[in-house]
Design a binder for these strands. Structure first.
Length: 809
RNA sequence: GCCGGGAUGGCGGAAUUGGUAGACGCAAAGGACUCAAAAUCCUUCGACCGCAAGGUCAUGAGAGUUCGAUUCUCUCUCCCGGCACCA
């Protein structure tokens, strides 16, 4: 009897050995095919890792170990995304400097990871808060600035009164701060903004070719929110002003009013004296509500400005209203109301007694007045134009295109593409971030810090609490703020805002290719060798990180820093692990499971196998401690099976082994780890049943097991006496050995299985039918109408209905 | 409301993409070993009828296509995710 498997000792032994031999260092020049396998790097929080975090890391570890065994040169690195609010808030709460907090948290995370036996190349470890790293984050900002893609703005931005900082649209959950749930306010602050919208079209178009999950691509498409339409310019009657309305559906023969958002700059310019008091009051009350309150209103409200615009095609004067259902930051902030053909416009017109003409006849053929919501024919539904002069009889959608052309030819409008995506508000009024490398000079304005002076170091400071005034805490450090202008040498002040948490993670995958380069963010040779990331694994971040990184990458491509148009060729989405109670794992609920405890009790190999065996990789699944027993038993049984190894191959195992080699290779490639694990269990079950396994067969089995359970596999291989070259390679399967001599074939009567027979997989039809009929004789008394034979699969005999239902009774 | 993804035993989930539904595992029940327990091993394990042989029903619901549907088509219900007074 072999001794009981001592996972603690054996796992420690191999982890130390791998670390000492630097076993997983990537080679920048190898001629072997390269694979860059990357996890979304973690944010080292104060809570430490819970069992959900390593799930993705285990998957990439399996994938990359598998690739190494197949002879690939693999880059599988790890690093830390450590700037931003969570670290700063943690530091404030615990009264330690964020730098110290981050150091401690990283140490914790790293120790936890070490126990799981990952194959990271730690020589490439990076940390976004390291000056040698953020030097290049700042460098990218400067390039954006030089190309006019980073600019200053005074537009009102989202301000979280609780986090005391401005936020990008991507940082919102609806109208609330994604971090703390506080409803954001609009605040006018001088901001740095990145022109991500300049890349909207390319980010949209290039999605198609990516090997990404459909729901992520869809989320990005929704977020970019492209819509084609036309900006129509209306003359305002008795005024020199004009109002521009954006519409995708110019049903202009039916346009009977215009609505301005309360914040629209024209509101007070065009409001007549009589209406002034009402408009002022309306705008006041609209401003007092936040976006959520406004959207929650059941009824449309609005007030007439007293002004009219001229409808180009009907020649009629149409009233201009102010209403809060028009949103200042959507389109042009002004909408033309076509109440017969838009539900929202209909409600508004109905309430305020505005004309509702019909200009489209829908499928119901109804040509009467549109007097109830059901009769509204909205865009996207089929219909024909009516009461529309030269458009009459045309299909709705065709007429819209024709209208756009017509308006453009008349100079009344201009076709435009509108995006929901807004430019990236890039300033944060907080301490723990990359300083924005800009100097403000009274003479030269905003001046880039010369590249040779990078990084602009984040100054050490005693008090880094947010001021809440819209000024960064850095503004209080006068000897840091006061500097000289790089252009004129005169006195100037540093930019005191910092970059958002998402800056450092927008390009980190490039730094892993060349982490110690002091002359460039990534050397061209290294970039060409490694790019793009072959497989990127992570959850969440469907929009923010993945859209920001794609934006920066495309910009770096444009300035010839990278050679691919997309950073991540393939993305595998990771389903979360919930707590046993079905809730999110959180310190707050006290339901967190620490991987350290699981590894201690069951071992890293069992832990790894369990997380992969839980279900499909992309599924969200609840942790179930009882279920670990299964994989834990599996590990113990593997250990015991070494006693069954004999010199001679076991014939009975041959075909199953071939199938297993094939299946596990395919499953790893496809990220179907759950079925791969189950296949190994099937093979082990067979080995135990046969009570013997050939030494060569055992070797193959261990090779298949290595990516999943590397510790025990290495230990058993060592005990069997194989050296590294001999066994650290992926087994191949022989397709000829996959085919069976005889297969079980189901015999169906009218699609119901009545018997099984054994046949050669390529048995001729006559033979198959004869055997089948013999097996189900009693069902054929009423005759046979038809026979279907699919070799190797099935025989189906069709009999008259009366015979199909009953058996012998 | 629009878009994307789902729904299979007590539970997690399989099913070669139209061919024996429930692989593999958990939990549960019975048995062996043991003074006992743990561990291990053996057996049972979708529902219903039946002593059994066997049969009937069954992949969210309902229709359809097909010799044959968890898989394809349509309608509906519910769940998860993205967007949303988006003009």
């Amino acid at each position: 009897m072999a001794e009981k498997y001592d996972h603690a000792a054996i796992e420690k032994k191999w982890q130390e050995r791998w670390e000492k031999s630097n076993a997983f260092a990537a080679d920048d020049t190898s001629a072997e095919p390269k694979k860059y396998v990357l996890d979304m790097f973690p944010y080292p929080s104060g809570e430490g890792l819970h069992v959900g975090h390593p799930k993705g890391y285990i998957a990439t570890d399996i994938y990359s170990r598998h690739m190494r065994m197949k002879g690939h040169n693999v880059l599988h690195p790890m690093g830390w995304d450590a700037f931003g609010l969570p670290a700063e808030n943690y530091a404030l709460k615990n009264k330690i400097h964020p730098r110290v907090a981050v150091e401690q948290n990283i140490a914790t995370f790293k120790a936890q990871l070490a126990h799981i036996g990952f194959d990271y190349d730690w020589s490439r470890e990076i940390n976004t808060t390291d000056p040698s790293y953020y030097k290049w984050t700042q460098w990218i900002f400067l390039q954006l600035f030089k190309k006019g893609l980073a600019f200053q703005s005074n537009e009102p931005i989202n301000w979280c009164p609780s986090c005391m900082t401005g936020l990008a649209n991507e940082d919102l959950d609806g109208a609330a701060c994604e971090r703390c749930g506080t409803v954001v306010e609009k605040k006018k602050l001088p901001q740095w903004v990145l022109k991500i919208t300049a890349y909207a079209d390319r980010m949209l178009a290039d999605l198609d070719a990516l090997q990404w999950p459909e729901h992520i691509k869809e989320a990005q498409r929704n977020w970019i929110g492209r819509s084609e339409g036309i900006n129509i310019t209306y003359e305002i009657v008795d005024s020199n002003e004009r109002v521009v309305c954006f519409t995708t559906t110019p049903v202009n023969f039916g346009a009977t009013f215009i609505v301005l958002a309360p914040e629209h700059p024209l509101v007070f310019k065009i409001t007549t004296k009589d209406q002034s008091a009402a408009v002022v009051a309306y705008v006041e009350q609209a401003r007092s509500k936040d976006a959520i309150e406004r959207a929650a209103q059941k009824e449309k409200t609005g007030v007439f400005t007293g002004a009219y615009a001229l409808n180009h095609v009907t020649g009629k004067q149409i009233p201009i209203w102010v209403a809060d259902f028009a949103l200042a930051d959507v389109g042009t902030g002004a909408v033309q109301g076509c109440p017969g053909h838009d539900m929202r416009d209909f409600e508004f017109a109905k309430k305020y007694g505005i004309a509702i003409p019909r200009v489209v006849v829908g499928m119901d053929g109804n040509t009467g007045p549109i007097d109830s919501p059901e009769k509204v024919i909205e865009k996207g539904t089929p219909g024909k134009m009516i009461n529309s002069d030269f458009l009459d009889g045309l299909e709705f959608s065709v007429a819209m295109e024709k209208t756009k052309d017509y308006f453009e030819s008349k100079g009344w409008g201009k076709k435009v593409v509108n995006y929901k995506l807004k430019d990236w508000v890039f300033s944060r009024q907080r301490y723990w971030g990359e300083p924005i490398p800009i100097v403000h000079c009274p003479k030269d304005g905003a001046v880039a810090v010369p590249e040779k002076d990078l990084p602009v170091l984040l100054p050490e400071v005693k008090s880094y609490e947010p001021s809440g005034t819209g000024e960064s805490p850095l503004a209080a450090i006068t000897d840091w703020v006061n500097t000289t202008c790089p252009m004129c040498g005169g006195p100037a002040k540093r930019e005191t805002n910092t970059m958002p948490q998402w800056a450092g993670s927008s390009w980190y995958y490039l730094r892993f290719m060349d982490p110690h380069n002091d002359a460039a963010l990534v050397g061209k040779d290294k970039e060409k060798y490694w790019a793009p990331v072959d497989v990127y694994v992570g959850g969440d971040h469907a929009v923010r990180h993945l859209i920001y990184a794609r934006f920066w990458h495309k910009f770096l491509y444009d300035i010839d820093m990278v050679s691919t148009i997309e950073p991540f060729a393939r993305l595998e989405f990771l389903g979360f692990i919930l707590a046993e109670d079905g809730r999110k794992m959180s310190k707050r609920y006290g339901n967190v499971i620490n991987p350290d405890d699981v590894v201690k009790q069951y071992g890293a190999d069992a832990f790894r196998l369990y997380e992969m065996f839980m279900g499909p990789f992309e599924n969200t699944t609840a942790w179930n401690t009882a279920s670990i027993n299964g994989v834990s038993r599996f590990v113990e049984r593997v250990w015991r099976a070494q006693e069954l190894v004999q010199a001679e191959d076991c014939k009975a195992l041959e075909r199953l082994l071939e199938q297993t080699v094939k299946k596990i290779g395919e499953d790893i490639e496809a990220f179907k780890f759950n079925t791969a694990v189950s296949q190994m269990m099937i093979l082990l079950n067979a080995i135990e049943k046969e009570k013997t396994v050939g030494k060569n067969q055992w070797k193959k089995f261990l090779q298949l097991l290595t990516p999943f359970a590397p510790h025990i596999a290495h230990e058993l291989a060592e005990k069997a006496g194989w050296n590294r070259e001999e066994w650290e390679q992926w087994p191949t399967h022989d397709p000829a050995k996959l085919a069976a001599d005889v297969v079980k074939i189901a015999v169906q009567i009218n699609g119901k299985v009545r018997a099984t027979i054994e046949l050669a997989p390529d048995a001729p039809e006559a033979e198959a039918l004869m055997a089948a009929r013999a097996a189900v004789e009693k069902w054929l008394a009423g005759g046979e109408k038809k026979a279907v034979y699919v070799p190797g699969k099935i025989v189906n005999l069709v009999v008259p209905d009366a015979q199909s239902g009953r058996g012998a009774d």
